[in-house]
């Protein structure tokens, strides 16, 4: 049983959390109301700035003609594929670089250049190579997330405490044991935070790819909206994107918590 002071303390914590949540909601609602008011009073041009009501109607419309979830699904599907490939392939390549330090030394400048290159510049070339389809989109997303994964995970591998390595060696560990008993578990935190970055990177890549080629997906929705000058559709697309991004981020955070909890 907790002491009275502790119960008081917990109550205070709870209250603080409630205040924060309510304030966050209030800001959002306040923003919507002002926006709608300005639109109703004709202070802003709804043709350019749309309005919450129109956005709501657009989303309901998308839902009614059964397009909403197929667009969302296409984007999510592409993101999941590039996210998984980037994570697995990236970790694998980082392991390879750790295993053979010389390879790492040789390719380091190339990695750095590739990493700082704005990948969207490669868009036209990617379309020609992979065609105007899902392959181009996934390749685009991979370009963006893979290299950053390799760099982050490799950094994680290399930041292992020197004394722990010494300890493993003094116990007679082989390189294989060193990697699987020390380097990899020690870097799990780094890998998981790389996952978090990867979700957003993959999503950015997918939307960029959809801007370039696609006929479906949230990116396509936004681009199409702007081409036919339907700003309500554009903003609806952005709104849906926000929701999708948030949900994916929370899923990864949830996994992170579960994994870390299991370890301690």
């Amino acid at each position: 049983m907790y002491s009275l002071e502790h119960i008081k303390f917990l109550k205070k914590l709870k209250r603080e959390k409630l205040i924060v949540t309510i304030s966050q909601l209030a800001i959002f609602i306040f923003f919507l109301i002002i926006w709608q008011l300005l639109a109703d009073l004709n202070i802003i041009n709804t043709f350019i700035f749309s309005s919450p009501k129109k956005i709501f109607e657009t989303i309901v419309g998308l839902y009614k003609n059964k397009n909403l979830f197929s667009h969302i699904w296409v984007t999510v599907y592409e993101t999941i594929i590039s996210f998984s490939v980037a994570t697995i392939l990236g970790t694998f390549i980082a392991s390879l670089l750790w295993w053979r330090k010389r390879i790492q030394k040789i390719i380091e400048p190339y990695l750095t250049i590739l990493n700082s290159l704005p990948k969207v510049a490669l868009g036209p070339m990617i379309i020609i190579w992979f065609g105007a389809g899902i392959k181009s989109i996934i390749f685009m997303a991979l370009l963006i997330s893979l290299i950053i994964t390799i760099i982050n995970v490799y950094e994680g591998f290399n930041s292992v405490n020197e004394n722990k390595i010494k300890l493993m060696k003094s116990l007679g560990a082989s390189k294989y044991q060193l990697f699987f008993k020390l380097i990899l578990p020690n870097s799990l935190n780094t890998i998981i935070s790389a996952l978090k970055i990867n979700v957003s990177m993959s999503l950015i890549g997918v939307i960029m790819g959809e801007f370039l080629v696609s006929k479906k997906g949230i990116g396509y929705l936004i681009l199409y909206g702007s081409q036919v000058f339907n700003l309500s559709l554009v903003i609806s697309g952005i709104f849906i994107l926000c929701v999708v991004a948030a949900i994916m981020y929370y899923i990864v955070s949830f996994i992170e918590k579960r994994v870390l909890k299991k370890r301690y």
Partner: peptide
């Protein structure tokens, strides 16, 4: 058996 200066226990 070598006991290094730092305990280097694995926290996981």
């Amino acid at each position: 058996g070598y006991m290094l200066q730092q305990d280097s226990l694995f926290e996981w």
